[in-house]
Amino acid sequence: MKVFKYLLKNPLSSFGIVSLLLFVMVAALAPIIAPPQSFQLSPYETPRSSFWATPQAMSKDHFLGTTQGQYDIYYGLVWGTRTAFKVGLGVVLVSSIIGIIVGSIAAFYGGIIDEVLMRVVDVFMAVPFLIAAMVLTTLLGKGLGPMIIALSAFGWMSYARVIRSEILRIKEMEFIQAARTYGVNDFSLIFRFILPNAFFPVLVLATMATGSMVLAASALSFLGVGTEEGYADWGQFISYSRNWIVGQGDDPFKYWYTLFFPGMAIFLFVFSWNLVGDALRDVLDPHTIHK
């Protein structure tokens, strides 16, 4: 609770928390504030009221305008909030679970197992992240699932490392030694004593990563291997805007809305996670002061 208090007291992190709460609300209320239309096969397919190639400015029907191909920006952003949470949290969840399993096995058993697992980590670290994710999504096809798999497959290594070093540290502590002498088995030792203690460093990492995974996903969209066309995904929408940044001869800001709104959404989201993560690190990092 001390942690939470600190986060709320710090102006930067409290801003982050408030804005994340807003995003959660938008995601939860999506069916009400942006109801899908009857002909949509799935609510994540952004509806198009017409098919003009050029973006259209804001109007009564389209609060935030439309992108190229007339995808409604407002709708896309509202439902895209869910996508963002899915991508961010999904990737972080999957990769931290892999990382925790690998890291704790390595640390707990040590010796040759540790050596092998850490070399595996090294190998994965030696793969350039974006290119590896690109290859995987190219192989698996477009869509949310493949994207989460690809980003997790090459994003779990830092969790493994952190968990491993934390466990090695905690393992030497007295209460663990004591529990061992009482014959507590390995499994419950890890789950009941060690992991809870190693939780905070992972939390810091995960918070920071949630935002950047959404960015990585948008980079994949930029490189052409993101979600399906028209899928309510900020990365997709901002990727649409890239061609309209230039505007038109005498009116350089003609299509500003195509960039501004998706840009703001993605930026606020990532920024908030980073602010929270940054502050969390200040509190939880054993090396810094607890004020």
């Binding site: 098919f51 052409g224 066309e229």
Partner: peptide, 15 residues
């Protein structure tokens, strides 16, 4: 992929 006209043609048909 990358053919917005194709997506449009399918989109109209779909609706």
């Amino acid at each position: 992929e990358g053919r917005s006209q194709a997506i449009a043609a399918f989109g109209v048909l779909q609706q």
